[in-house]
């Protein structure tokens, strides 16, 4: 038996909206420590992982580890039936073939319950090695969203470089070129509005903007985002979900043949 109650149910809705376009059919691994998912996108170019800690829920019970095969598009449709202030409870039996979702309004005067059919999904789990990052940048998630969106109107790929000057995003296309450089800041009113750059070595990597743009769908989950760049390795884009967990995206760099 699995049962989890989330007071801030809108986080679940935002999480599913943040990943559903990259991954359609995924396995959620449930254990007494929480809910984990890892999935590649359809083209196997990026990897999406999330963790929701058991202690981030108002109530969490999992008698034995379960794998729930979920069509995220269908789950998103169901979550559309929830109100933005609803409390969401998820339930599944150990050998059941459905996930029950219950939406309670704030005043608990309206209750919706929906059964989502589960599916059997074959998925490959990838091991992510501990990486020694060349550069780690923390910035407002709205800033990241704006950079990748703005550069998408210039080109399809972006060069991201970290140097002493800061972190530079460059795109080139038929209409011209664009560079956006972010420098470290410390003057913002709120700590999370600052840009923090920790560089161990200069690094330059090339990525498809389409995916980086897709990662920005997690913007409503967190006010900040961390971008980890490592020489010749995938970029990692992290959104921490306050008091609950995280969603992480990894994208393979483009490589000169």
């Amino acid at each position: 038996m699995f049962e989890a109650r989330l007071i801030q149910g809108s986080l679940l809705k935002k999480l599913v909206d943040a990943i559903k376009e990259l991954c359609t059919e995924v396995n959620w691994d449930i254990s007494n420590s929480g809910i984990n998912m890892q999935s590649m996108d359809g083209s196997h170019v990026c990897l999406v992982a999330f963790n929701l800690r058991a202690d981030g829920f108002d109530h969490f019970r999992c008698d034995r580890p379960l794998t729930l095969g979920i069509n995220l598009g269908n789950l998103a449709k169901i979550l559309k039936c929830s109100g933005s202030n609803d409390i969401i409870t998820m339930k599944a039996d150990d050998n059941g073939d459905t996930l029950t979702l219950m939406f309670e309004s704030e005043k608990q005067d309206r209750i919706t319950d929906v059964d989502l059919k589960l599916m059997s999904i074959e998925s490959e789990h990838l091991g992510i090695p501990d990486q020694d990052y060349s550069a780690e940048t923390s910035m407002p998630s709205s800033e990241y969203q704006r950079i990748v969106r703005d550069l998408s109107s210039i080109g399809d790929t972006v060069n991201i470089s970290a140097t002493k000057e800061g972190i530079k995003f460059s795109a080139m296309g038929d209409i011209g070129t664009a560079n956006i450089t972010l420098r470290q800041t410390s003057s913002a009113d709120k700590e999370e509005e600052n840009v923090k750059i920790e560089m161990k070595e200069p690094v330059l990597l090339t990525f498809a903007l389409r995916y980086l743009n897709n990662f920005a769908k997690a913007t409503p989950l967190s006010s900040t985002v961390q971008v980890f760049l490592t020489k010749d390795l995938p970029v990692q884009v992290n959104y921490n979900i306050q008091d609950l967990g995280y969603v992480k995206y990894y994208l393979a760099p483009k490589i000169e043949e």
């Binding site: 590649m40 990838l126 393979a252 483009k254 043949e257």
Partner: peptide
């Protein structure tokens, strides 16, 4: 145009 490798080139199956 640089090539786009798959993510499994960097992360191995567990």
């Amino acid at each position: 145009e640089p090539a786009q490798p798959k993510i499994s080139k960097f992360f191995s199956p567990r």
